[in-house]
Design a protein around this nucleic acid. Structure first.
Lengths: 197, 197
DNA sequence: GATCGAAACGGACCATAGTCCGTTTTCATT
DNA sequence: AATGAAAACGGACTATGGTCCGTTTCGATC
């Protein structure tokens, strides 16, 4: 008798023990980070706190960076919800340009807020594509609403790039640019990109 | 008798043994990287290859990331020379817009070429400000030549940001954007930023 | 060229990320 | 409920980044 035919490469369901441990690990990780800071959390301590073996931690997250990336993704969920369905101007309801500018400022602040975590998550080989995609997808959508012409996928990444922590750090630390000036600069950039010929 | 008065906090000169070891370390590092790849180089192996103690390696570079940053800086010197004094259009002689576009493409290719090293150098807390500054300084200068008005320091960082490896990766790997399309996109971006109202 | 304080050295030592593999749990099948 | 294979588990083990501190080298001064 043939099985129910996994026609599409269906994602194999998660075993109950696996799910339980994953939840325990995420919870423990967030608690430990809140308590000791990102730096102060070791993988051994995490395993102990979650009541699992170390091997389990690494099978789940692959590496320390992977773990931090998972925590980061999880903590950005709330923000994503605010962007998708929260109050205007960040959420829907405001005109696209207002939303876009609110988005930029909000994203900048969020990246500063999560700085430790972002650095600990390392280069985004690990970081979930899901979360990384979200911001550019949203910007692309808003550019469309604004009637911008051209390679919107590229322009979206180009507008999001200056909001990445790595760039913000450069501006704030090296060039001594204040956050309000960063916001003003990004606003100007957006207008230059958006305005018709 | 008072000393020659170090009026300004003059950088203390480097002792001879220190200089010798630094040179040996850089040379050994480059050789080992060429031979085993960035990943395959351990700090112990480097110390051994350079014929110094491990402590010396860490006093010099602070960390593995610091070492990789130093190697990266060193390898970018050649490129910087090409930008400052090499043949047009990358070097001086061509009109500013041509130089700027040549710069963007060249920088993109360089970042791809040095990808391994850039990742190993980690977040640029370590990476020399010198090298990081160079690109934005140059772009800022070219924007000035082009008669662009506004916050040139900010605009320069904003134009350089999409050329960072972290962003290029996102475009190439996730969004499946080809390198030629990246170049075209950046060219378009530059024109939008530069063109007068 | 003898003296001395400061700077650099080196390698044993420690902390922690990541691996490995024998054991246990889960769950689909009977 | 019993069975068995696949998946997950756990913790001892390894590799390597990073620290520490007693020893050595340097070079300025006399």
């Amino acid at each position: 008798m043939p099985k129910p035919l996994p026609l599409l490469t269906s994602p194999p369901p998660e075993r109950r023990d696996a799910a339980r441990n994953r939840e325990a690990l995420m919870e423990a990780a967030e608690a430990l980070i809140k308590q000791h800071g990102v730096r102060g959390v070791t993988m051994d301590a995490l395993a102990a706190a979650a009541g699992v073996g170390k091997g389990t931690v690494f099978r789940r997250f692959g590496s320390r960076e992977g773990l931090m990336a998972a925590v980061l993704d999880h903590s950005e969920t709330e923000w994503q919800a605010a962007v998708m369905g929260g109050p205007a101007p960040l959420g829907p309801g405001a005109p696209p340009m207002e939303r876009l500018l609110a988005f930029g400022e909000s994203r900048m602040l969020l990246n500063f807020k999560h700085a430790e975590l972002i650095e600990a998550a390392g280069y985004p080989g690990q970081r979930s594509l899901q979360a990384l995609s979200f911001t550019t997808m949203h910007v692309r959508y808003l550019l469309g609403e604004l009637g911008v012409e051209g390679d919107l996928a590229y322009l979206a990444t180009a507008l999001v790039a200056p909001l990445e922590l790595i760039v913000l750090r450069q501006q704030a630390d090296r060039d001594q640019i204040s956050t309000t000036r960063i916001v003003a600069g990004w606003t100007d950039l957006v207008h230059r990109v958006v305005r018709p010929d």
